[in-house]
Amino acid sequence: MADAITEQFSAPLTFNWTLSYRCNFSCSHCYSRDEAAEELSTEEIKRIVDVLVTQQVPFINFGGGEPLIRDDLLEITRYASDQGLNVSMNSNGWLLNQATAEELKAAGFKSVGISIDSATGASHDDFRNMPGSFEKATAALDALHQAGIKTTMSSVISRINFQDFRSLLDLARQHHVAQIYLHNFKCSGRGFKNREDLDLTPEEWKEFYVEALQVKNDTDDLLISFDDPVIASLPGYQEESLVKGSSCGKLSLHLRPNGDITPCGFIPLVVGNILTDDFEDLWYNSPVLNGMRHKEAKGKCQGCGSYQDCLGGCTARAFATTGDLSEPDPHCWK
């Protein structure tokens, strides 16, 4: 099936790769903490890297689970970076001391992101159910900076931090972070179970984005990124992205620990397995991926003047709450 995405892109630009669902933390919003999947051997993982190299996928980002749980993370990263892949990861920072940071640098990591949800230590620790985790996370940022690795900070916006997001920016500056991601809240896994306590109302999301976008426009010493397609429906929003709507299934795909491919980590629809299926066939012909690329306006999206910009917002959130990829994003304020 020919379409604008596959006519343009012969493969995704990024694979978000969950090497393991194992984690030393138990966070309130985690999409994957209650997931389980068989993990692959180092050699099988290297075979996947070979596939990604053949398909010319330029970026891989290890997530999880905690990537540093895998003893072979450095070996895998070295294997991938030696073949030209740009490797990054997101970590909670608990297992990352100065020696580890130096090893990550030597292995070829281009950047490492640390998750921090509040600039207040007690609040972060409580959210992450891990006393001492704030101190470890900020120390990890410092160690990475000292080792010469570009750092990013990932903060999931929720009720605990949306009114105080500027303090997260200040924290990032204090620890020499190059880019902060203010992630939108996903209703997956524990995020779905704890949605009532953690998620904002659509109106609160709108207020947050209006304010945060203004701050972003006024900031030149720190890159501030959002990854929320619903933002495109804000009046006057002009930032250009590579694709309209969710980038999942268009610019990025997700790998589960057993090699299964899903459009993103938050959509549990397996489109195939990278080790046993023909990747190009999946990329061009998967009904799930093509469904994400050709959403049809449903519900209040029908006739909405913003639909051509947001394409219904976050497909993962729509699917999690309705079971339908094309339903409107529940965060939409329109």
Binding site: E7, Q8, F9, S10, L13, Q56, P58, F59, N86
Partner: peptide
């Protein structure tokens, strides 16, 4: 600069 030849398009 990260770049890629889009082989099918080519």
């Amino acid at each position: 600069i990260v770049w890629r030849r889009e082989k099918r398009r080519e």
